[in-house]
Amino acid sequence: MSPLLEVRGLRAGYDGSAVLQGVDVAVEEGTVLAVLGRNGVGKSTLVMSVIGLVRAYAGSVTFAGRDLTGARTDTIAAAGIALVPQGRRVFGPLTVEENLRIAVRRNRPGPWTLERIYEVLPRLKERRGNRGDQLSGGEQQMLAIGRALLTNPRLLLLDEPSDGLSPMVVAQVADVVRALRDDGITVLLVEQNVRLALGLADHVAVMVKGEIAWRTDPAGFRGDRERVRALMSVTGPQ
């Protein structure tokens, strides 16, 4: 069976400079792939390229058997890919419900409705009349996830979802991601928090200098401390 997302030989970057140096990566449907690596190796560029926000110079991005290389962002979103960006990027002057209703107007047919978002993320229902800039970091992250889910994606791109959050809120985000995986949503997770990533991932890909240097599973990652240290300058979790 073909993977849901398949990236082959992808070179992409900014202003004519390639950050990705021929990335090959695949994500099987219904799984979580965690992309790990030091800062600046191209992890965020990878997800931004998949969603069409960074130009691909070479290679291909195939989703559900469809070539989306070079497609417009709205075309990619309509195909069933959604991004939860680093930093959340909620609309501060708009209320929680207004932020969500923007996504409702763009959604594909599917199970995710505003009512279901409020069931799965009840804090958003409690805060639905508050502006985005009145929310805590954790609440903004839940809002960003809820907004993405309302497009009814098959693939969710999560870019550093734990960034700036307390350990308690990180645990809540992890619970949400596990529930989404159990619900059949495929996840490509870019994350600096190694412990969080390994707790969620079915598969792990480590990036070095714009390339995938190692593919393994969480057990393999934990069991090869020397390689982890060489690639990431960390010892990894116990």
Rank of each mutant, 00 (worst) to 15 (best):
T31N: 05
K43H: 11
R106L: 11
D182H: 04
G236I: 02
V84N: 11
E98D: 14
V228S: 03
T31D: 07
E119V: 07
G80W: 14
S162N: 07
P111L: 08
L36H: 13
N193W: 00
T235M: 13
V206E: 14
L94F: 11
R225Q: 13
L121V: 08
L165M: 05
L165I: 04
L198Y: 02
S166G: 07
G80F: 13
A171Q: 14
T113A: 14
D175L: 01
L156Q: 02
E160H: 00
N99C: 15
A174R: 12
V41I: 10
L180T: 05
V228R: 06
R131W: 11
R123D: 06
G164W: 05
E97V: 14
G164H: 03
T186N: 00
Y118W: 08
E6S: 14
Y14V: 01
R215S: 07
R106G: 00
A205T: 06
N193R: 09
L143W: 01
E119F: 09
A78C: 09
A71V: 03
A26C: 02
D175T: 02
G16Q: 14
L10V: 12
L10T: 05
R89Y: 05
L36T: 12
A179E: 06
A64E: 06
S17G: 05
T113Q: 14
Q21T: 04
D133P: 00
K125M: 08
L33Q: 05
I81H: 04
V194S: 04
D217L: 09
L150D: 07
V120R: 13
V27Q: 01
D224Y: 05
S49I: 00
R72D: 15
V23N: 06
K125D: 09
S136W: 04
